[in-house]
Design a binder for these strands. Structure first.
Length: 426
RNA sequence: GUGGGUAUAGCUCAGUUGGUUAGAGCGCCAGGUUGUGGCCCUGGAGGUCGCCGGUUCAAAUCCGGUUACUCACCCCA
């Protein structure tokens, strides 16, 4: 029989890891609550057109990375490659603009891009994202930077850098773009192959080419910040002022460009330098034209997304101790005669305390059961043998010290609660 | 999509110029202890050597293809 394996670029997240994911997800919900963002759940697939219009026809994502197929009604459907377009669509479709603005929303879940997999880059990956729709206030831009940073910090991540830039707006960016293009065109053949293509397609990208040759050629080139229109300039200055006021660390990075067409004004990216090539664990920016583009009225908006797989990678890389070890509280060992029946009754009672209780399901020797309890890192083992059965009592063993008490059946919960308390007070 | 590397037990890895029954450590199971974990000792289970084809008397080993993983590029979270 042929072995069925998981599709390329997908991952099984196993029990050893899921508890970590749950912890991060809980942290996300907690922080969103404090910042006043509420969860929105949109479909995992949408009409293809949404992403074509939203993300931009000429972006890599739309050109070659979408999971697109025809459904049985011959509609073109696409698995979502990012979250913003869907959120904006849902915002318009459900008329959330009738509620007080800005709408403050967050989402959490899988995204899909048909890419060649690498560490930190998968075909199904997980993002947490936040969007604030309906305000131009630079305070929101700053909030979008603070929120993910808060998440990273509370997860115990320390070595990351925040890069920010402004990409201008439809007023000023085209002028800069043209200026760059004209300048580069004169010396086009001296650039690397990639950059020669970039010059016609997206000249801003030439600026962050990794080739030192291109870096040198691009030296002394005017920066976008010098081309910003008055409105964009003021907006950017205010963002920076607020960041300073709040003592946030950041790097002004005039070469920062992002991949979606919809970004305007503020863009930012959060980098973990030790992560390798896929080192951005979060990023976002303002998208003042997108709501209108998707068919709503003209409303400014700003948002970000965090790559949870990459966050998990960097946490494991640095210090996995942020994740508490979880283990059963009690293991019930039984052997012989009717002791199993007693164990079943006892486990049923003990579980009402809310603690994690385990027992032996394989009718193994006491020795084997002790070994299991040890491997599971149980704090206590309750031993029920024939003698205990006869005395209507159990032995309760502390696994760390090895000390053991005989306790009457009626007093087991009381005994455990009392000694757990003493232990945690130490 | 482009280029490089890798693929042997659940995990980490040995395996000589191609040679007979493919090994180790850890983990797992059982026993040493007829009722007690960690340390120690003994034994056991577990492999179509990623897959397909070729060369050869003979392939884990050489060759081709393929799939997966991995690193870099493109790009992105």
């Amino acid at each position: 029989m042929m072995k069925v394996r998981r599709p390329r670029g997908t991952n099984d997240i196993l029990p050893a890891e899921t508890s970590n994911w749950q912890l991060i997800e809980a942290k996300i919900r907690e922080i969103c609550y404090r910042f006043g963002y509420q969860e929105i759940r949109t479909p995992i697939f949408e009409h293809t057109e949404l992403f074509q219009r939203g993300i931009g026809e000429t972006t890599d994502i739309v050109e070659k990375e979408m999971y697109t197929f025809l459904d049985r009604g011959r509609r073109s459907i696409t698995l979502r490659p990012e979250g913003t377009a869907s959120v904006v669509r849902a915002f318009i479709e459900n008329k959330l603009y009738a509620a007080p603005l800005p709408a403050k929303l967050y989402y959490l879940g899988p995204m899909f891009r048909y890419e060649k997999p690498q560490a930190g880059r998968y075909r199904q990956f997980y993002q947490f994202g936040v969007e604030a729709i309906g305000s131009l206030d630079p305070v929101l831009d700053v909030e979008m930077i603070m929120l993910p940073i808060e998440l990273y910090k509370e997860c115990g991540l320390s070595n990351f850098d925040v890069h920010i830039n402004s990409l201008g707006c439809p007023e000023c960016r085209p002028q800069y773009r043209q200026a760059l293009q004209e300048r580069f065109m004169q010396i086009k053949d001296r650039f690397c192959k990639n950059c020669q293509a970039r010059i016609t397609r997206n000249p801003l990208r030439v600026l962050d080419c990794k080739s030192t040759k291109c870096q040198e050629l691009a030296e002394g080139i005017p920066l976008i910040t010098e081309y910003l229109c008055q409105e964009c300039r003021t907006h950017f200055e205010q963002v920076i002022e607020y960041l300073n006021q709040l003592n946030m660390d950041y790097v002004l990075d005039p070469k920062l460009v992002r991949g979606f067409d919809y970004y305007t004004k503020t863009v930012f990216e959060i980098i973990v330098p030790t992560l390798g090539a896929q080192n951005a664990i979060g990023g976002g920016g303002r998208y003042d034209g997108l709501v209108e583009e998707i068919g709503g009225e003209s409303l400014p908006a700003v948002g970000f997304a965090v790559g949870l797989d990459r966050l998990m990678l960097s946490l494991n890389q640095q210090d996995a101790s942020v994740f508490p070890q979880i283990n059963p509280e009690v293991y019930i060992a039984h052997f012989g005669g009717a002791t199993k029946k007693m164990a079943v009754s006892l486990i049923n009672e003990l579980r009402k305390t809310g603690l994690w209780i385990e027992m032996d399901y394989l009718d193994r020797s006491l020795r084997a059961q002790m070994k299991s309890a040890d491997r599971l890192n149980c704090n206590w083992v309750i031993i029920i043998g024939e003698d205990e059965l006869a005395a209507n009592a159990v032995k309760i063993r502390r696994m760390d010290t090895g000390s053991e008490d005989e306790v009457g059946m009626d007093a087991v919960i009381e005994y455990l609660m009392k000694h757990r308390e003493e232990n945690s007070n130490k």
